[in-house]
Design a protein around this nucleic acid. Structure first.
Length: 436
RNA sequence: GGAGCGAUGGCAGAGCGGACGAAUGCAGCCGCCUUGAAAGCGGCCGGGCCGAAAGGCCCCGGGGGUUCGAAUCCCCCUCGCUCCGCCA
């Protein structure tokens, strides 16, 4: 969530920044007013509490000295003050709760350099790589679901039979290709990121930390009986790794990666991109994440985009990098880039990675801090909220689709990109038949 | 799933109704001593909120209750450990 103190001290700045997102600012102004009321109530409560404490100490002393009558009188007085304190506390608490609820749905401030814009249409394209619209032959203009069926590596009918539409099943070489892509995604980042295998069912607090709850509850699978949520991305458990912890500045940046299945109800996108692998309820993804100081974050963001990009390029795919404008940013984002891969069979640009800097927005929700290092190398004073960044290193289904479509040969077989061969036992081709 | 025990500062660990935000030890930091280091000695050493400051308030796993007063008593929850059961 945004910094309430900053909202209080620089309201014009915060309102202007949020205004760039094109959202309704009334709730933000309301928080400002509630905050004024809350502090006043808390101040009055604290005064009364102080009196109660002082009197109670006196009561104890008087009892010890055997002055029971005087003590009894003070007890009565303190009891009355206690009633008052209770009422003031309830008032302050109610206000805090309203503020917290409102704050949870107010989005992050966009970075000053994030481009202005109202929607997806205003996202500037930063670069387009490897793309020649006329360079694709008719053999590549076949959608992956047809290729998958022809080669027996993708079985959409049976996926739907088991779990319903938008659940998919890979088989044979297709399943091996999934595993190969996961392994590739991990290996390419293992030089700098510690691998984590987190739980994929998490508690409500864990979903709140990243901003996936309360606002987007309809998009997530919820296991009612145990009150657990199926993670929509490894970002969720990775961000909460350090929840309620205080790290040392010397340990930053701290980097983690995880392969996990990801679960999404896609409630808001019914009927869109429903064919094949374009949008599915369960998919595999390798995620990379960093905890950092504010100063370290910009360079990390560039590095993480570069990592995701290099993997896509290494697979011989055409792609473009776009920056997300203020009107299209996710709630928690401070600055964000997408990588879209071109899939010739469906003739579409598919989002395969979104790399974002969250400033301290998530870390404030998750209460992740660090102890700054002083100039002399000794631990500095106090603690600061750190910054989080994360992005997909490799999202399997769409990359799978682009690989299969891009590398389909005129004879219908798939030429395995060189980078992937070690992960497929050295195989150079995926074909139909027993060796598939 | 059943039974029992536990949760206190970076760690270990006292406290079990009234100067307790919390003894003590270890770790850390700063001085003294030393050619340097160790040892020794002295000092410092949790976090959050409000406030210009002085200062005030909150936090002993979480929530509720009893009391003039709760780390301490009661209730609920969560987590951990041990034993039994079950199990890939």
């Amino acid at each position: 969530m945004i910094d309430l103190r900053r909202l209080r001290s620089e309201p014009e700045f915060v309102l202007a920044a949020l205004g760039r997102r094109g959202i309704d600012l009334a709730p933000v102004e309301q928080v400002l007013e509630l905050d004024r009321q809350q502090r006043e109530a808390a101040r009055r409560r604290d005064e009364v509490r102080n009196q109660v404490r002082t009197i109670s100490a006196d009561v104890g002393r008087l009892f010890k000295e055997g002055r029971k009558d005087e003590a009894g009188a003070l007890q009565a007085q303190s009891r009355a003050l206690g009633e008052q304190e209770k009422a003031l506390d309830a008032e302050a608490e109610a206000l805090s709760e309203r503020i917290r609820t409102a704050l949870l749905v107010i989005p992050n401030l966009p970075h000053a350099d994030a481009p202005d814009g109202a929607s997806e249409a205003d996202n500037p394209e930063l670069r387009k790589v490897n793309f020649d619209p006329d360079g694709y032959g008719p053999h590549q203009r076949v959608p992956h679901w047809e290729i998958g069926k022809e080669l027996g590596i993708l079985d959409l009918e049976r996926g739907a039979k088991l779990s319903g539409s938008m659940f998919v099943m890979y088989r044979g070489g297709g399943a091996a290709l999934v595993r190969a892509l996961i392994q590739l995604g991990l290996d390419r980042n293992a030089d700098a990121f510690e691998e984590i295998r987190p739980p994929t069912l998490v508690r409500t607090e864990t979903m709140i930390s990243t901003g996936h709850l309360p606002k987007f509850a309809d998009d997530a699978y919820h296991v009612e009986r145990d009150d657990l949520w199926a993670i929509p991305t490894a970002e969720v458990p990775l961000t909460s790794l350090a929840r309620d912890e205080v790290l040392d500045e010397a340990d930053l940046p701290s980097r983690f990666m995880a392969y996990t299945p990801c679960y999404r109800r896609e409630a808001g996108s019914a009927g869109r991109d429903t064919r094949g692998l374009l949008r599915v309820h369960e998919f595999d993804k390798v995620e990379i994440l960093a905890y950092a100081t504010a100063a370290q974050a910009p360079a990390l963001l560039v590095e993480m985009v570069g990592r995701a990009e290099a993997t896509i390029a290494g697979l011989g795919l055409a792609y473009r990098v776009i920056e997300i404008c203020t009107g299209d940013m996710g709630q928690s984002h401070h600055r964000s880039f997408d990588i879209e891969v071109y899939a010739p069979g469906v003739d579409q640009w598919l989002e395969v990675s979104s790399i974002s800097w969250f400033s301290d927005y998530q870390a404030r929700r998750a209460n992740i801090r660090y102890r700054p290092t002083g100039e002399d190398g000794a631990p500095g004073k106090g603690t600061e909220i750190l910054h989080t960044l994360n992005g997909s290193a490799l999202a399997v289904p769409r990359v799978w689709a682009a690989v299969v479509e891009t590398h389909r040969r005129p004879d219908g077989q798939i030429a395995v990109p060189e980078m992937l061969r070690p992960y497929l036992g050295g195989r150079e081709l995926l074909s139909a038949g027993p060796s598939r």
